[in-house]
């Protein structure tokens, strides 16, 4: 038996994470491992993380408008804090987003949806959280788009998020949704999360305090990364 001397990260709360095998989401059929994952005690590999900074990975948080260009659509500000499960802010952590344009089309060669491309909307951004864990992007409210999962399948309006953290085991890729979207209860990706409260936390809150008068509406989306376990775990070997 080997014992780690590194406290790792807390396991997921029951129902709070989607399963890898989600029958209603067709692409999982041939891509989910059939063997259960091997739970390992944390080592330095899992508790350390890449040091990222705007110097190495240039940030840009203005997706809607810049000198000489302006994207089509409804301007919005999405902002929030990155915290861990103990409520501690994660400062200086890299937050990346990517999304479709206002018409529901990605600026991506493999997106064949018959909707207009916007030459002024690239649809990706990157920023580092401040000392209180805040991030903030100005962008365009994306459109819903069709996909081929089943007949008449449409993804709810969403923005993809990629977040690092202070440890490799905190890595998170997720999607932010919009309140009141009628597609949410019939979306196999969103509905794959068993716990309704966990699903609800992926829906941004409309927030007039984040809006900018005469310029853009505001949405608040906080992101919580895994918290550290209190004690090291023993390896089963």
């Amino acid at each position: 038996m080997t014992t780690s001397d590194q406290p790792g990260y807390r396991p997921a709360a029951p129902g709070s994470q989607p399963p890898l095998d989600a029958p209603a989401y067709g692409s999982t059929h041939k891509r989910h491992p059939k063997q259960p994952p091997l739970r390992i005690a944390a080592t330095l590999t899992e508790t350390s993380a890449p040091r990222m900074s705007a110097g190495l990975y240039p940030s840009h948080a203005e997706l809607a408008k810049g000198p000489g260009w302006e994207a089509q659509g409804e301007r919005i500000i999405v902002a929030g804090r990155v915290l861990d499960e103990d409520g501690r802010p994660l400062r200086g952590t890299m937050v990346e987003i990517w999304q479709a344009n206002a018409a529901g089309r990605y600026n991506h060669e493999r997106d064949r949806h018959d909707a207009p491309l916007d030459p002024n909307f690239k649809g990706e951004g990157r920023i580092f959280t401040d000392a209180e864990g805040w991030y903030r992007f100005t962008t365009i409210r994306p459109g819903a788009y069709p996909w081929r999962n089943h007949h008449n399948a449409w993804r709810p309006v969403h923005i993809h998020y990629s977040v690092f953290g202070a440890g490799f085991a905190q890595r998170l890729v997720t999607q932010m949704y919009f309140p009141g979207d009628p597609l949410l209860p019939i979306d196999p990706v969103f509905m794959a999360i068993p716990d309704a409260a966990a699903r609800d936390r992926l829906v941004a809150r409309f927030d007039l305090d984040i809006a900018e008068p005469e310029y853009a509406l505001g949405y608040r989306f906080d992101i919580v990364l895994r918290g550290r376990a209190a004690t090291p775990m023993e390896n089963p070997a």
């Binding site: 709360a13 915290l83 479709a100 600026n107 991506h108 997106d111 649809g123």
Partner: peptide, 25 residues
């Protein structure tokens, strides 16, 4: 292994990166 008591917040759910993640490649 016993579950540790949980305090405060719960980690945000993961979602697929989808087919168009290359925008951050």
């Amino acid at each position: 292994m016993t579950d540790e008591p949980r305090f405060g917040l719960t980690a945000t759910a993961s979602q697929t990166a989808g087919p168009f993640w290359h925008l951050i490649d």
